[in-house]
Each structure stands twice: as C-alpha cells, then as structure tokens.
Amino acid sequence: MSGTAIVVTSGKGGVGKTTAAANIGAGLAMSGPTVALVDADIGLRNLDLVLGLENRIVYDLVNVVEGGCDVQKALIRHKHIENLSLLPAAQSRDKTAVTPEQMKALTLGLKESFDFVILDCPAGIEQGFKNAIAGADRAIVVTTPEMSAVRDADRIIGMLEAEEVKNPWLIVNRIRPDMVKRHDMMNVDDLIDFLKVELLGVVPDDESIIISTNRGIPAVMDEKSRAGRAFLDIASRIMGNDVPIAATLEPDDWFSRFAKWLGISRG
C-alpha cells in the first residue's frame, strides 16, 4: 500500500503555508490515518516550532538524504497526536543541500509507511520549491485574499501544471467576513473565478492561530478555534468526505452577535 504525498505551497511568503501544513497534518492524523509532515524549508525551519517539537530534533532531512541516518530514526512522533510524525528540516544548511531527485526518493520511501505525506514548501519558485514538489502527487496552494498573494498563487499553479502536478487545491486563508461584506476584501467567488481551481477550504482570520502557533499546539486541537475547525473540515475533505464550505463562515445576524456578546460560541 502506498500513501499520498501532498505539497503545501503558495509562492508568496507569510500567507500561512506552515500553519496550514501543520494543521492539515494534525487534522488528518486525528481522524485516523498515519501522517508524516516533512519540513522542506531547509535553512528556515518552522514546522517543528508550530508543532512544539523543536527540542526533540536529533536528525534532520539533510542527514537522511545524505545517508547519515535512517529515515525512521529522524522522524519525531508528535507528543499528543500518536499518528503524526515530523521529519524536520536542517537549519544550518540551505536549499542546495538536496536535489529534487533525492526529495523524490525520500517522499516515495515515506509513502510506503504513511497514509499521507504532507510537504511544507518554502516560499519562492527556486530550488526549494522544485525540491518540495518533486515527489508530490497533489498540491495545496495557500493564498490570502490579497492581490499580491493571488498573483503569486496563479504563478505557482502554472508552474505546478508544468511540473505535472495537476489539479491543485486552493485554500483561502485569513478571510475576514466583515471586510468581505463591506467589499473591502476580495470574496472567495471572485478569487475562484480568477484562478479557476478547486476550492479545498476557507480559513477565517483568527487570533487563536497566533496563540496556538506560539504554544506549539496545532489549532485543530483547540475546539474553540474557528480556524482550527476550518482546518479540520479541510482534512475531512482531503479524506474524500463531502463537507460543505461555508463561504462567509460567520453568521452575522443579530442572534449570533448577541451570542458573541454573551461569550457563547456556536459550534
């Protein structure tokens, strides 16, 4: 049996690739399948921090690729989520330390023992990007509703198609429903109309993400986090379940505002 390798990419930096990769990986693992998260951002590793596993790193991806250690030895099991493992990036090296062929072989090897291999891609379109997508079966393109991020997403989708990673999924991150309603932010329909790819999910702008990132606990583990719930839905859709996408995400009628005022969160 062989798993599926999914690369999380965006082109532009700072749109939430690492957060998305961590939460999708954690969300998938929480629902049953085994998941390996691979930090392909060599030299600027972050995924270990977001998962709260920084102090457990002994070996990294470059060690494995260079044959210094067995991949099973380098994988770090998550402290709370049993099915989730992380292959951290090297921090003291850079993108030229590995080649696309080596990444392809590594990904192929991981697919043998995991149901899902989630690759966290670095920003940019250079070698780091080419390394990360080399072994991927599918791609998730993360964007925010800003023109600059959407433009970069378009570029990335074109490059993915050229590299034969077809039919990418799109995640629109950091949507603010109130701004969309005031027409101060692009709405998801316009974005899809422009990029013409399949929408995998919409994640609201949520302060709790910053808190959970700093604490090293993925937002999907926090039942109260709206972003966490959006990522759980995304994980469920990847598993093939039909979960409707609530495009506006937040009910904005008088009742929910009243409930919010009272501090009640509606599940």
Partner: peptide, 25 residues
C-alpha cells in the same frame, strides 16, 4: 489552456488562446 502569471507565448503569426490570459503573462 489558460496562460498564468509568468507564462508567455510568442509566435511569428497569429495567436488564439482558448482560455484566460492572466495578469503577469
């Protein structure tokens, strides 16, 4: 197909695109 950002077609003759020509292309 659609031409996405960063993609270019140059041709000595006429060009017909069955798709969009996105900004940056």
């Amino acid at each position: 197909r659609t031409l996405r950002s960063g993609q270019a077609v140059s041709f000595d003759g006429n060009v017909v695109v069955m798709g969009d020509v996105n900004p940056g292309s």
